[in-house]
Computed example of a mutant assay.
Amino acid sequence: MARSALLHLLRSQSKHRLSSTYFYTGQRLCRSLASPRTWSCRPSLTSAIQLSAGHRRWLSQSTAAEERKFSDAPRSGGQTGEDEKVDIVVYHGPVSTTIRKVKLLSLSSCFFSVLLGPVITFMTLPNMSMILKGMMASSVLLISASTTAALHWVVSPYIHKMKWRPGSDSFEVEMMSWLATYVPRTIKFSDIRPPETNRPVVTFKANGKFYYVDEEHCHDKALLARLTPTETSSS
């Protein structure tokens, strides 16, 4: 009986000493963290805290990367962008660049003829009468303007670029204006009619305007068939 009481007393004292030791150690650690002098004197504790902070930062970055990867992953049952893509038929005029260069050259020559033609005529022929000088300057202007207008009339139906999505009832074309700039238009297949004229470089007519497609460079036969309707199909 006395022996058991003695053992119980020894165990309670050892537990009390151990708890007091832990408390004292924790108190010293808190003081060392609060005191700047002790902090600077203990590099091992500083490095341990820095290592712990770096570990937490790395863990947060890896977690964010995993969340971003999960959010970017395609959902089950959904369609990706490649599945939603549909082949678009694109036609490019084979001589589009050449036509634009010739038209720019014609416009520039017409501009200089209008601007400098009368000046050159009146300065280079001082012995000629004013009536003849005026007639010569007017003829130069008329020839330059008429050639520019004729060039535009011939190449105005030329389609420089055309895009069509299979199954669509309309298509987009790029034409060229007077100033050699590209003008986009949208044409419906229901508005296409045969040209019904002997005008050169014309394939079909739509909304009162003429259009030309180079059949040798239009490789999509379905599109070409819809662009060249016959009299029976249009009626």
Rank of each mutant, 00 (worst) to 15 (best):
183 V>M: 01
161 K>S: 11
148 T>N: 04
138 S>A: 14
154 V>Q: 13
163 K>Q: 15
199 R>C: 12
108 S>H: 06
203 T>V: 04
145 A>M: 03
142 L>M: 06
26 G>T: 12
16 H>M: 03
72 D>W: 04
26 G>W: 14
220 D>T: 00
76 S>W: 05
187 I>L: 12
115 L>W: 03
36 P>S: 09
224 L>N: 02
141 L>A: 11
30 C>F: 11
45 L>R: 14
157 P>L: 06
83 D>R: 15
182 Y>E: 13
166 P>N: 10
60 S>W: 11
125 L>F: 08
62 S>L: 09
44 S>I: 12
125 L>E: 06
87 D>L: 08
188 K>W: 11
54 G>F: 07
138 S>Q: 05
146 S>K: 02
217 H>D: 09
69 K>H: 13
47 S>V: 08
50 Q>S: 07
122 F>D: 01
143 I>T: 07
87 D>R: 13
63 T>N: 00
223 L>E: 00
174 E>D: 08
28 R>C: 14
180 A>R: 05
151 L>W: 02
109 S>A: 15
93 G>N: 04
19 S>N: 12
42 R>G: 07
229 P>A: 01
44 S>M: 08
89 V>W: 01
233 S>C: 00
33 L>A: 08
182 Y>F: 08
152 H>W: 04
73 A>Q: 07
64 A>K: 05
199 R>L: 15
164 W>E: 06
29 L>M: 14
194 P>C: 10
105 L>S: 09
46 T>D: 03
28 R>V: 11
217 H>I: 06
94 P>R: 03
117 G>W: 00
219 H>T: 09
73 A>D: 05
130 M>D: 09
198 N>F: 15
26 G>C: 13
130 M>V: 10
46 T>G: 09
167 G>N: 10
73 A>L: 05
81 G>R: 15
130 M>K: 08
111 F>H: 10
188 K>F: 13
179 L>H: 14
222 A>W: 02
3 R>C: 02
102 V>Y: 09
199 R>M: 15
181 T>K: 11
235 S>D: 02
222 A>H: 10
173 V>Q: 04
206 A>D: 03
136 M>R: 05
65 A>C: 03
78 G>C: 14
138 S>T: 07
193 R>L: 14
8 H>Y: 04
162 M>T: 03
